[in-house]
Computed example of a mutant assay.
Amino acid sequence: MDNDIGVNVRGSAYGKDYYDPPPAPFIDVEELSKWSLYRAVIAEFIATLLFLYIGVLTIIGYKSQTDTKANGDVCGGVGLLGIAWAFGGMIFVLVYCTAGISGFFLKLSLPSF
């Protein structure tokens, strides 16, 4: 990799036009005493439970509606596309609702200064 200082057209040196912050530690002990960490863990846990609850209920409902032995219809239920929409919709709703609380996606994409 080249040096941090380059030479422009006229021959004068220039430096970086941005600042690299020092690397953050992977585990910060100070964060364990903050309420925001526990609030994020609770939000992610509830979001995961809701995701699994809605997904499993959709699959069970589809199975019971299409069971011909239990007076079901072969063409009844939401179908495989409906199951896919249920899972995809739940992912969208849960990310939309918990991104502001947990901030997990914000920590991955935004640099901290």
Score class of each variant (00 low, 15 high):
Met1Asn: 10
Asp2His: 07
Asp2Gly: 09
Asp4Arg: 05
Asp4Phe: 11
Asp4Tyr: 10
Asp4Ser: 12
Ile5Pro: 01
Ile5Trp: 09
Ile5Lys: 05
Gly6Tyr: 12
Gly6Pro: 02
Asn8Met: 15
Val9His: 13
Arg10Val: 14
Arg10Tyr: 10
Ser12Lys: 14
Ala13Cys: 13
Tyr14Trp: 14
Gly15Met: 08
Gly15His: 13
Asp17His: 09
Tyr18Gln: 12
Tyr18Phe: 15
Tyr18Asp: 11
Tyr18Trp: 15
Tyr19Pro: 01
Asp20Phe: 04
Asp20Gln: 09
Pro22Glu: 02
Pro22Asn: 01
Pro22Tyr: 00
Pro23Ala: 05
Pro23Tyr: 03
Ala24Arg: 15
Pro25Arg: 03
Phe26Pro: 00
Ile27Glu: 00
Ile27Ser: 01
Ile27Thr: 03
Asp28His: 04
Val29Thr: 08
Glu30Pro: 00
Glu30Lys: 09
Glu30Ser: 07
Glu31Asp: 11
Leu32Ile: 14
Leu32Glu: 08
Lys34His: 09
Trp35Ala: 15
Trp35Met: 12
Trp35His: 11
Trp35Thr: 14
Trp35Gln: 12
Ser36Lys: 13
Leu37Glu: 05
Leu37His: 05
Leu37Ser: 10
Tyr38Trp: 15
Tyr38Pro: 06
Val41Asn: 06
Ile42Pro: 00
Ala43Gln: 04
Glu44Tyr: 00
Phe45His: 02
Phe45Val: 06
Ile46Gly: 00
Ala47Ser: 12
Thr48Pro: 00
Leu49Tyr: 01
Leu50Gly: 01
Leu50Cys: 06
Phe51Val: 01
Leu52Ile: 08
Tyr53His: 07
Ile54Thr: 06
Ile54Met: 06
Gly55Tyr: 00
Gly55Ile: 01
Val56Phe: 14
Leu57Val: 06
Thr58Ser: 14
Ile59Phe: 15
Ile59Gly: 04
Ile59Glu: 09
Ile60Gln: 08
Gly61Trp: 03
Lys63Thr: 13
Gln65Ile: 01
Thr66Asn: 04
Asp67Trp: 02
Asp67Gln: 07
Asp67Ser: 04
Asp67Pro: 02
Thr68Asp: 05
Thr68Arg: 10
Lys69Met: 11
Ala70Arg: 15
Gly72Gln: 04
Asp73Ile: 09
Asp73Gly: 09
Val74Ile: 11
Val74Arg: 11
Cys75Gln: 12
Cys75Arg: 12
Gly76Cys: 09
Gly76Asp: 12
Gly77Asp: 07
Val78Pro: 00
Leu80His: 04
Leu80Gly: 15
Leu81Trp: 05
Leu81Gln: 10
Gly82Glu: 04
Ile83His: 00
Ile83Lys: 00
Ala86Val: 07
Ala86Lys: 02
Phe87Ala: 06
Gly88Leu: 05
Gly89His: 02
Gly89Arg: 02
Gly89Asn: 03
Leu94Asp: 06
Leu94Gln: 10
Val95Thr: 14
Val95Ser: 08
Val95Cys: 08
Val95His: 08
Tyr96Ser: 13
Cys97Lys: 07
Thr98Glu: 08
Ala99Met: 07
Ala99Tyr: 07
Gly100Arg: 02
Ile101Tyr: 05
Gly103Lys: 04
Gly103Met: 05
Gly103Glu: 05
Phe104Thr: 14
Phe104Pro: 01
Phe104Leu: 14
Phe104Val: 09
Phe105Gln: 03
Phe105Cys: 02
Phe105Met: 07
Phe105Ser: 03
Leu106Tyr: 08
Lys107Gln: 12
Leu108Thr: 03
Leu108Val: 06
Ser109Gln: 09
Pro111Tyr: 06
Pro111Phe: 08
Phe113Tyr: 13
